[in-house]
């Protein structure tokens, strides 16, 4: 997978973007739609991230979740976890945030053309996948089946639920699952359990059909490409599941998060084994990743 990236002109200097619109996705997740107020970022590709921050508080790496064909306004979907993200999630319309970027290697969409595509997300992991899903849906004649599997802790924590419902209307195979349906279990018609439990039914059938048509043909195993984003443990289990179904690890892409600070490969914080995640990721293939996620505390 070779995707060339274009370095930003002054990638270490923050520029100002204003909050055009904000939407609360869940009790602790909000999406900020931002527009340039002084200077603007270079074009981005789905899967790339920015360092978004509040002057005096700090900055954090967040993937751009809006479609890449809008070069001006960028959306960031943020979960309030630390000092910076808590302030960002509370930002109001008109507030100015700082951004640097875009950084990192994007999703390799070209390698998925001509085959089925599965997007598998855990929690807020659907956000870094959103721009890629929008692109596949827009160019859907280039792809086979489009599958979107989303796992969340509870129904209230499913991010982008209305958008997911609208995807389903357009023929995308959208399946949701939660760990706990909660007190309003009667109103939850989705699955209960881990997102990995959806894979065999949704993805496995595709691989089996293709392989039965052409037994022993190596090329048929390339027919499914998977794009993953979620907690490390969820992605690890998903890779195992997909590989057991015969999906080529070169065609399993994951986006990783480590402690990105400089985002230009010089501060050393985001190392994961031999990978500098801001430079070599955040999107890597399961082949590149190797056993990096199964080695504890790497």
């Amino acid at each position: 997978m070779t995707v060339t990236m274009r370095p930003a002109r002054a990638p270490d200097i923050p520029i100002s973007y204003g909050v055009l619109e904000r939407s609360d996705e869940t009790h602790d997740v909000a999406t900020l739609r931002t527009y340039p107020v002084a200077g603007r970022l270079p074009s981005f590709a789905p899967g790339q991230f920015s360092m978004i921050g509040i002057a005096g508080v700090g900055e954090v790496p967040i993937s751009i979740s809006s479609p890449a064909d809008d070069d001006t306004a960028h959306s960031y979907t943020i979960r309030a976890i630390g000092a910076v993200t808590q302030r960002l999630v509370r930002a109001g319309v008109g507030d100015v945030v700082t951004v640097r970027g875009p950084f990192g290697r994007p999703w390799d969409m070209a390698s998925a053309e001509g085959g089925d595509v599965a997007f598998i997300a855990g929690g807020i992991g659907i956000a870094p996948l959103r721009a890629a899903i929008e692109e596949v849906v827009r160019d859907r004649q280039r792809y086979g089946r489009i599958i979107v599997l989303v796992g969340a802790t509870t129904p209230d924590n499913v991010v982008f639920r209305p958008w997911l419902e609208s995807l389903r209307q357009t023929g995308v195979d959208v399946r949701l699952t939660v760990d706990r349906p909660g007190p309003d279990a009667s109103s939850w018609f989705g699955n209960v359990g881990l997102v990995t439990e959806l894979i065999v039914d949704a993805v496995g059938s595709v691989s089996r059909v293709v392989q039965d048509d052409n037994p022993g043909d190596e090329a048929t195993r390339d027919r499914l490409s998977a794009f993953l984003c979620g907690p490390d443990a969820m992605m690890m289990a998903t890779v195992v599941e997909l590989e057991q179904l015969g999906v080529d690890p070169d065609h399993i892409q994951l986006t990783l998060e480590r402690n990105m600070q400089c985002a230009i490969g010089t501060c050393g914080h985001c190392q994961l084994g031999g990978l500098l995640i801001c430079r070599d990721g955040p999107v890597v293939t399961a082949t590149q990743l190797g056993d990096a996620l199964t080695t504890s505390e790497l």
Binding site: P14, S16, A55, V96, T98
Partner: peptide, 17 residues
């Protein structure tokens, strides 16, 4: 590395490298 000045949340951030 740099200084940033912003009087109000809605002001652009002035950056001095």
């Amino acid at each position: 590395t740099l200084s940033m000045t912003q009087s109000h949340a809605a002001d652009p951030v002035e950056v001095h490298v």
